[in-house]
Nucleic acid binder design. Structure first.
Length: 829
RNA sequence: GCGGGGGUGGCGGAACGGCAGACGCGCCAGACUUAGGAUCUGGUGCCAUUGGCGUGGGGGUUCAAGUCCCCCCCUCCGCACCA
């Protein structure tokens, strides 16, 4: 009987399911652990990235279960989104049918991997039982003033036919299709995530200690908090004031121009007052700016272009008129879309002024230097001393900034302000396959929310998607037409759906009470299970899902539904699975299908290899040879049980304590067993180094092979070793471990059996290798009894013949003695 | 440009400031075999004769540096006209 993984894996998956081994309940009397992986989009098939992600999570969940925790470990599907619409067109099906077919197929695939999910808790975001709560939460946000509609220049992806949130624009391109994003003026739905900007920044320090530093930095940069001041320019001949934000109020006396973004609202007001010829030129310039894609406009190296308007704004301090320009490098997305131009101390402004012949007035001198605006070749952006600024001359920069803002506030020239880069979350999408936004447009009452008791607003499922970029909802008059909940008159439904990131912003709370019908979740469940103790997923969500979910959690806490303000206590971002140096992709043809690996080698092998081949955060290079190696190791474990089965079965459960062992080889073996268990525990629990944990198991296996029991004690030790090995292997290769456990005569489930305890006295060595160095170089190794004191150790080493030979009569001028470790003798030459 | 990783055998990767290269892959040899691409055992950083040299390069701290400090090079990843 060999290692028949197919039979074994099917068998144990069936038994776990029959015995409901991994179903858990809220139970405040038990310590809990919430282990979660980012739920997948039901694209149709699992890929290696999924396998890697879930193999880590399942290993942890299984480990912690054996460590005595009540482990919540659920799985679900992020099931709304564009690919379903594209597939519907391509395969002439319905997004609904395609998605559900994929969900069922992928669930089977996941089950074949032996992942220990509590499947009763499966959540699908396209299920009305789920998305009704999207709508409900959206209405709560609306009630709390966090939802609004606004016409604004927004990111538009032409191929996708929809708008995008700022977070979904990557380097000026659409995060999904990577086509350049353009700006369009559209009326859209927004969520005021910016109300939480400060807390989102603050809690990076206090609440995300368990996150990789990299992700914390990415979020900090994305939120982009900067302190400064806001000042206003009163525009001459127009009843308008331009607010502008600056972090360098100390350079306020160096303003020589004002610059506006092309989208600035003042542009239209100015055009109204301008004579036609000039107005046309300005319109052309604005059009030219706006025609640039986001990529072009955000390229720091691009040429700065400007247009001088015939208007001036008054300098808030000096009252001098300052010319107003429109410039292509001013972003409407940041600050107020207008800046105070200080060419002396901002390189962009400097380049702009040199090009258009605008004056440069230095107001900060570097230490020991005096700048000349006429001859400067670059802006001076560093710290220095204020000049050309009246009473403030001579102040060092770091002092000048707060001093001058204080003065400006007192005199009414400015107000202290904190600016964030984060913009409000554009939540509406011109898509079909998503959560309907629960609002109607009534000609009399305006835009009205659907009352909560009328939720969900169901998404019609029997649709035909004909073309990309046209929601079939627009062709459903019977769905669009409804009655206004306020006046009862005919009204139109909102046809936009929600960004699918809305769904994924709170699903972790839904897992806590998946069937709950009174609210998104039952607080008695979330109070127990939340926050997620370990979250695992890709780094690509650093500034998307991981920010949105944090925001949701804070909002839900504010309305009294959650007790935690951060959703994920610890975050593990796993590296990519690559092959031949490149990310696995269909176009490169280097994709390895998990299904094939599972049928060739089994799920246990796939899991073991993927956890062994690289540390979790690193990219993992897929290697067929490596997979074979993992498979070989499992075979080795199998044989070491099978070959000794009779003796193993008859020596069950009797641990021989260290002090009862006399023979050195028995003591050594016992020590190897316990240090292996201790190391595996530490590697998983503290270091999160799963690859080295597996290496320990291989060492233990090698030790078992090398050990040949000669007496009853030896046989008992061998059994202890095998038991320990199976326990430790069980989170990694649960099926084969369970099978071998049963072969040994056990009736219980290994998956639920307690993790082995480590006997501390079995970790203490009898003999240690003392490294003897001379001038830091290894010169001898001495096997000596452990626990020698410094003096004693020094004496033994100095008396050793090989050491004396090495010293060749030289007397050490210094002796470094580290007990149980090394002796370093320092000699002259 | 700014920020963050990372550079260790033929390869993936190990190493509380204390024996560099655990474990695995590959390779070499042996055993068992009709056979071996199965299995088991042993070997395997480089150069050489004792002995040297080795963790991207160069300095430094230290009895001792892959590990700490300074400078430089290369690479991957984020962000990038953020006022």
């Amino acid at each position: 009987m060999g290692y028949d993984f197919q039979t074994i894996e099917t068998k144990w998956q069936r038994i776990w399911e029959e015995r409901r081994a991994f179903e858990v309940e809220t139970d405040p009397s038990k310590p809990k652990f919430y282990c979660l992986e980012m739920f997948p989009y039901p694209s149709g098939a699992l890929h290696m990235g999924h396998i890697r992600n879930y193999s880590m999570g399942d290993m942890l969940a299984r480990f912690l279960r054996k460590r005595g925790m009540n482990v919540l470990y659920p799985m679900g599907f992020d099931a709304f989104g564009m690919p379903a619409e594209n597939a519907a067109i391509k395969y002439k099906t319905r997004p609904h049918d395609w998605t559900w077919k994929n969900i069922e197929h992928m669930t089977i695939q996941l089950k074949r991997m032996g992942y220990s999910y509590d499947w009763r808790r499966r959540v699908e975001s396209c299920n009305p039982d789920y998305y009704r709560w999207n709508q409900w939460i959206f209405l709560q946000m609306y009630k709390h003033g966090l939802v609004y509609q606004k016409e604004a220049p927004v990111n538009w992806c032409e191929p996708c036919g929809t708008v995008l949130a700022n977070e979904q624009v990557e380097g000026g391109t659409c995060w999904r299709c990577h086509h350049p994003v353009i700006k369009k003026n559209l009326k859209q739905w927004f969520i005021k995530i910016t109300d939480y900007a400060q807390e989102l920044v603050d809690d990076i320090e206090t609440g995300l200690q368990g996150w990789p530093e990299r992700v914390r930095i990415m979020q900090r940069n994305w939120l982009g908090r900067s302190e400064g001041a806001c000042l206003e320019f009163e525009v001459l001949d127009l009843n308008y004031t331009i607010p502008a934000f600056t972090t360098r109020f100390d350079t306020v006396f160096g303003i020589t121009f004002i610059a506006l973004a092309a989208e600035h609202e003042l542009v239209a007001l100015m055009l109204n007052k301008m004579e036609e010829g000039e107005a046309q030129k300005m319109r052309d310039f604005v059009a030219q700016c706006m025609a640039q894609s986001s990529i072009e406009r955000s390229d720091a190296g691009a040429e700065k272009l400007g247009f001088k308007t015939p208007f001036c704004g008054l300098h808030p301090v000096t009252g001098k008129p300052i010319p107003i320009w429109i410039a292509n490098y001013i972003l409407m997305d940041y600050g107020t879309g207008a800046i105070m131009g200080v060419p002396g101390h901002d390189q962009r402004d400097f380049d702009f002024c040199r090009k258009y012949g605008i004056d440069v007035i230095p107001v900060i001198n570097p230490e020991g230097e005096t700048l000349d605006g006429a001859t400067m070749e670059t802006a001076f952006e560093g710290d220095g001393f204020v000049c050309n600024s009246g009473q403030f001359n001579g102040l060092p920069t770091q002092e000048a900034i707060p001093t001058m803002i204080d003065w400006g506030e007192k005199e009414g020239y400015c107000s202290r302000e904190i600016q964030f880069r984060l913009r409000d979350w554009l939540i509406s999408r011109q898509r079909y396959w998503g959560t309907p936004i629960p609002f109607v447009h009534c000609p009399h009452c305006g835009t009205m929310p659907i009352p909560e008791d009328q939720l969900p607003v169901l998404l019609p499922e029997d649709v035909e998607v004909r073309e990309v970029g046209r929601s079939p909802l627009l062709d459903r008059p019977e769905w669009l037409s409804t009655l206004c909940p306020q006046c009862g008159q005919p009204a139109q439904r909102e046809a936009d759906t929600m960004d699918t990131f809305f769904c994924s912003s709170w699903y972790f709370a839904r897992y806590c009470s998946p069937g709950y019908t009174q609210a998104p979740f039952d607080t008695k469940d979330t109070d127990y299970w939340m926050a997620v103790d370990q979250y695992i997923g890709g780094i690509e969500h650093a500034c998307l899902h991981l920010i949105y979910a944090r925001f949701f959690t804070k909002f839900l806490a504010d309305i009294g539904m959650l007790k935690v303000r951060e959703p994920f206590t610890n975050l593990l971002t796993q590296g990519m699975v690559i092959k031949d140096g490149a990310k696995m992709s269909k176009s490169l043809g280097n994709v390895v299908d998990p299904t094939e690996i599972v049928s060739t080698y089994g799920a246990d092998t796939a899991r073991l290899f993927i956890l062994f081949a690289a540390p979790p955060q690193n990219d993992l290079d897929w290697s067929e040879r490596g997979v074979e190696g993992a498979h070989r190791f499992i075979g080795r474990v199998w044989r070491c049980v099978e070959d000794n089965l009779d003796s193993l079965r008859t020596h069950e459960g009797r641990r021989v304590p260290m002090k009862a062992l006399k023979k050195p080889e028995l003591r050594d073996f016992k020590r190897k067993i316990h240090s292996a268990v201790a190391a595996v525990t530490r590697d998983i629990e503290e270091e999160k180094q799963f690859n080295t944990a597996i290496a320990r198991l291989m060492e233990l296996t090698n030790a078992i092979y090398a050990f040949h029991p000669e007496d009853e004690t030896g046989h008992a030790l061998q059994r202890e070793a095998v038991d320990s090995l199976l326990h430790c292997l069980s989170p990694f290769c649960p099926h084969v471990a369970e099978e071998l456990w049963e072969m040994l005569g056990n009736k219980t489930l290994l998956s639920l059996a307690p993790w082995p305890t480590v006997e501390d006295e079995a970790l203490v060595a009898d003999v240690v290798t003392i490294v003897v160095q001379i001038n830091g170089k290894l010169r001898a190794r001495l096997e000596l009894p452990a626990g020698l004191g410094k003096e004693e150790l020094e004496k033994v080493v100095m008396e050793d013949a090989s050491v004396q030979e090495r010293l060749q009569g030289r007397e050490p001028i210094k002796k470094i003695v580290v007990p149980d470790k090394l002796v370093n003798l320092v000699v002259k030459n």
